[in-house]
Amino acid sequence: MTLLSAFLMVGCSLFGKDRAVFGGTKDDYLDAKEAPVTLVVPDDLDPSSVRDSWPIPVIELRPLQKVFPDKAPMPTAMWGRDDDSSIRIKKLGDRRWIVVGETPDQVWPVVKQFLADNGIGIAGQRAQEGLIFSEVLKVGDEEYADVVRKALRSTKRDAGSFGITDQILFRVEQGIRRGSAEVHVRQVDEAINLDKVDWPERSSNVAIEADLVNELGAYFAAGLAQPSVSIVGRQISTGMKAAVVRDDKGYPVLHLNVDFDRAWATVGQALERSEMNVTALHRDEGYFEVVIDPEILTGATEGLIRRLIPGRSDDYADHSVIVRIDAAESGHDVNVRSPKGDPVPVELSEQILVMLREFAA
């Protein structure tokens, strides 16, 4: 008994968490500090060439940031729909554009092939901005084999404007949803300076724009161009249209790089497609009143929502929240607040905003 007692007294120290024999050392790096040792460099050597190859990085403290000392966090939840790769023509007022379930560098060569198949030359391009300019076209009242000149002739006949030249502008840019692209079309009456022109807010003739968008959308849907990836198209740097980021106070926001009209339409459509219950709309004030079903956030419901990657599945109760759209330095920010205007829990807000981003179009 005496020998056993002595062993147990010594053994207690061996099982301590700070000892390497039986204790764990996997968390020791959390308390790591730089050794207070100064390297002495001889006078005949250059001290500037001596540097720490493995420095301890300085961690920038941010408001509301989370740390995970015990285990890695679960991945962020993702939602998806079955029609991610479909071709859709979107309309907002007089504006029309095509949404393609492919990346811009895959869409870029299809637009160029569309012009080539219709016998339309390319006068220039600015790849970083995603811009392609057609040659100047002069369409008369005669029969044409290609769909572009046919569309121009039909509209010009109705308007009696055969004496006016046309130039078609295309813009390929990132879509709101990840892995998607948008194609915008403009028609202008006069030849433009390809090096200095800004993207027109609207076409000279919106009817021609509508016809060309329909024809280009049909071309994408028919899959007439061979699948390819353009090296030049990879230069497109129009930036992400939608991203969940943190504001200065550490709260998540969904940044939409679009104007208010489109931001309002985008959020409204995303709320509808995600099956959230919108109880009231206040467009002038820029917010939606929404009741969140916890089963939607946890992916327990059937229907349009499909949970792809399981995130943290806290048991949320029913939540009445406000989804607000505020003007930002570039575009607009979408944030989630309580009915009284106070911030909601960060994790709940982030899940709602991620879901809105995935269902946006």
Rank of each mutant, 00 (worst) to 15 (best):
G119F: 08
R171F: 05
H255G: 00
I176Y: 08
V100R: 08
A327R: 14
L152D: 04
S228K: 15
V232M: 05
G179V: 07
G11K: 02
F170M: 02
P294V: 11
S320E: 15
A181T: 08
V334Q: 09
P200Y: 08
S134L: 03
L308K: 06
E60R: 14
H332N: 13
N277Q: 15
A32K: 09
R283M: 13
L14S: 04
M240H: 07
E34T: 09
I122K: 04
A145Y: 06
R283T: 04
Q167Y: 01
M78I: 09
Q128E: 12
M355D: 03
E34G: 14
D189C: 02
K66Q: 04
D82F: 11
K91T: 15
L131T: 01
G23I: 13
N214L: 06
A218P: 00
F288M: 10
D198I: 08
I59K: 10
Q351I: 13
E215I: 05
G311R: 05
V197D: 01
R51H: 07
A127T: 12
V50N: 05
K66P: 00
Q125P: 00
L169D: 03
R81E: 06
L256V: 06
D189G: 11
I120N: 01
D248Q: 10
V197H: 04
D94R: 13
V334A: 07
R324I: 03
N193T: 00
E285I: 02
S237W: 04
R246S: 14
P252V: 10
I87P: 00
G11F: 15
E272V: 08
Q269D: 14
A243C: 03
A145K: 11
I59Q: 13
W264E: 03
V172M: 06
W79N: 06
Q106D: 06
D195T: 09
N193G: 00
E285D: 09
D261Q: 04
V40D: 14
L356I: 12
E102Q: 12
E209M: 06
G175E: 06
V244A: 10
D259L: 13
G11V: 07
T279V: 13
P310C: 02
G239R: 06
E190K: 15
P227N: 01
H332K: 04
